[in-house]
Computed example of a mutant assay.
Amino acid sequence: MKHPSPHIISEGGVQFELGGLRGNCIEYDFKKMLIYLEAKGKLLFGKKFKIYRKDYEVLYKLCNYQIKDWSTCKRLGIDPKKGLLLSGPVGCGKTSLMKLLRCMTPHYPTYEIIPARNISFGFNHIGYSIIVQYGDHSFYCFDDLGIEPTGRFFGKDCNVLGEILLSRHELFLSHRVKTHATTNLNAQELEERYGNRVRSRMREMFNLISFDAESKDKRK
């Protein structure tokens, strides 16, 4: 389905113009994107939702990645061909932002957000077929990566998300299939959780964007 004006989005009877057209190109306005994200956030998560000024730096990177502003991404050291690994403390807003980000670009393929723990629990019930299931060409964002329990099927343990990430890496190399993830863990903790082999491939697959380690828990 084509979107003749993808920069104009209607929510709750209100139109949000995220930028303007110049020829066939959309020139996005970061301030207007912030207004939309806060309004959409209130619709999705309740009236208490707020975009915090201290998060503008992270949001600027995420927004430019999502709209594929190649020149700005290059300046920021971001590769739009890779996925996102959004890291930060518990409650800083990672999952909410990943849910919101995909709403800004209705003309782009979207991604499904899947809690990593649900995948691990699924492995316990149906076994290795779940690794095959998430090794397909769909776009996913694995939420809370690294804190999921180890999978166990018929008495055998499996680092389920580690195996899935290896499969997703192969898809990334062969078909440029992107994977996103959120995590509370830092690089060292991820390596301890998944091993150096997976961590090395994650560097190839992901742009790492991080909240400040002192970001407060917005759910309190």
Rank of each mutant, 00 (worst) to 15 (best):
F142A: 08
C103K: 03
L97S: 08
N159I: 03
D144G: 02
H137V: 03
D144I: 02
I126M: 12
I147N: 09
V132E: 14
E170R: 10
R152G: 06
C141F: 00
F142Q: 06
C158K: 14
Y134T: 03
L97V: 09
L97G: 01
Q133M: 12
F142D: 05
G127M: 11
M98V: 05
G162V: 06
V132I: 07
I113G: 03
G162R: 12
I113L: 14
S167F: 05
T110L: 06
Y140W: 02
G122C: 01
D144V: 01
A116V: 03
L166F: 13
S138D: 05
E170I: 04
K99I: 00
A116N: 06
Y111H: 05
D136T: 07
A116W: 06
I126E: 12
F153D: 13
P115Y: 08
L171M: 08
H137C: 00
L161W: 00
F123P: 03
L171S: 03
G151T: 11
S120W: 01
G155N: 13
P106I: 09
T105D: 07
L145Y: 06
Y134N: 05
V132Y: 02
M104G: 09
H137M: 04
P115I: 06
E112K: 13
R102H: 03
P149K: 15
L165Q: 05
N159M: 06
I131F: 01
E112N: 05
H125M: 13
S96I: 08
N124H: 09
F123T: 12
E163C: 02
G151A: 11
I119W: 05
R102G: 01
V160S: 06
L97W: 12
Q133T: 12
G122L: 04
T150Q: 14
